[in-house]
């Protein structure tokens, strides 16, 4: 790893370091799941209780008339969790490997990327669990489900780009994770996770347009539409294009920010 490598070189490095990336992802999953007896099952508890409580409150206290409320919320929570947990976990990606960063030279951008990778694995596992639930409902599986793959790739670029930025910030200022936690709470309500974007049309159509400029709104809506409506009423192409463009831009900016600051990590941690 020569000093002063170019931007494209950093991207090529991701491919060349795929063995390292795989190793780091495996470690991350192991460390996260080993500490608890239930392992992976434990990490499903959060979405499950979220659904139970949201359903109880919305359905039985506020009397929202909506069929399959729980499953609708679940379909929104899965992509949102990938986003929020992925970005949050990346904050400490460098600090968790403090020992290694201070003593070994390696392509350090693999650290936040590995965190994103581990969360991507988690997303896939959660989706498989969702499919099991689908078998029980039952929901018809069809080829529109394959749209989930490009959608997830776009989202992964977005999450990775933000992860570079928050990881840089958190490595210097170690309370960024808490600030971010609050921002994500707000972000969750500004994203159609607990409600469909179509409801915004009832408020005023302009709100829907504004909300859909948020790439996470497109991804969340996209997920729910693919899973529950076989991609009918999928977000309009212009919003999808905007979401992908923003995601790519965030990735490029994130990596540029990373390249600007990462060389000092061994000196400041």
């Amino acid at each position: 790893m020569a000093m002063g490598t170019g931007f494209l070189e950093s991207i090529a490095q991701i491919w060349r370091s795929r063995d390292l990336l795989r190793e780091l992802v495996a470690r991350e999953l192991k460390v996260r799941y080993r500490r608890s007896v239930l392992g992976f099952a434990w990490s499903l508890i959060t979405p499950i209780y979220q659904i139970v409580f949201y359903t109880l409150i919305l359905k039985y206290i506020l009397h929202v008339q909506e069929n399959d409320l729980g499953i609708k919320i679940l379909c929104g929570i899965i992509p949102w969790t990938f986003f929020s947990v992925g970005v949050t976990n990346s904050c400490s990606a460098v600090l968790r490997y403090r020992n290694v960063v201070k003593k070994v030279a390696f392509p350090r951008h693999m650290l936040p990327l590995a965190t994103v990778g581990a969360n991507l694995v988690h997303l896939v596992l959660s989706t498989l669990v969702l499919f099991v639930v689908f078998l029980a409902i039952p929901v018809v599986f069809d080829e529109t489900f394959l749209y989930l793959i490009p959608l997830t790739l776009g989202q992964t670029l977005l999450v990775a780009g933000l992860s570079f930025i928050v990881c840089c910030a958190h490595t210097y200022y170690q309370d960024v994770e808490y600030v971010l936690g609050n921002l994500l709470q707000v972000g969750m309500f500004l994203t159609p996770v607990l409600y469909p974007a179509s409801k915004l049309d009832l408020v005023a159509p302009v709100y829907r347009t504004l909300f859909m400029l948020n790439p996470m709104a497109v991804y969340t809506e996209g997920w729910r539409n693919i899973l529950l409506r076989h991609a009918q009423e999928f977000p309009e192409p212009v919003f999808v294009a905007a979401a992908v463009a923003v995601s790519v831009a965030v990735f490029i900016v994130g990596l540029a920010v990373w390249r600007r600051y990462e060389w000092r990590f061994p000196e400041v941690i």
Binding site: V31, N99, V101, V104
Partner: peptide, 13 residues
């Protein structure tokens, strides 16, 4: 690199 303790181990592994 071999510095003080270890070559940069991850303590939990």
């Amino acid at each position: 690199v071999l510095m003080e303790a270890g070559v940069g181990f991850h303590e939990d592994l």
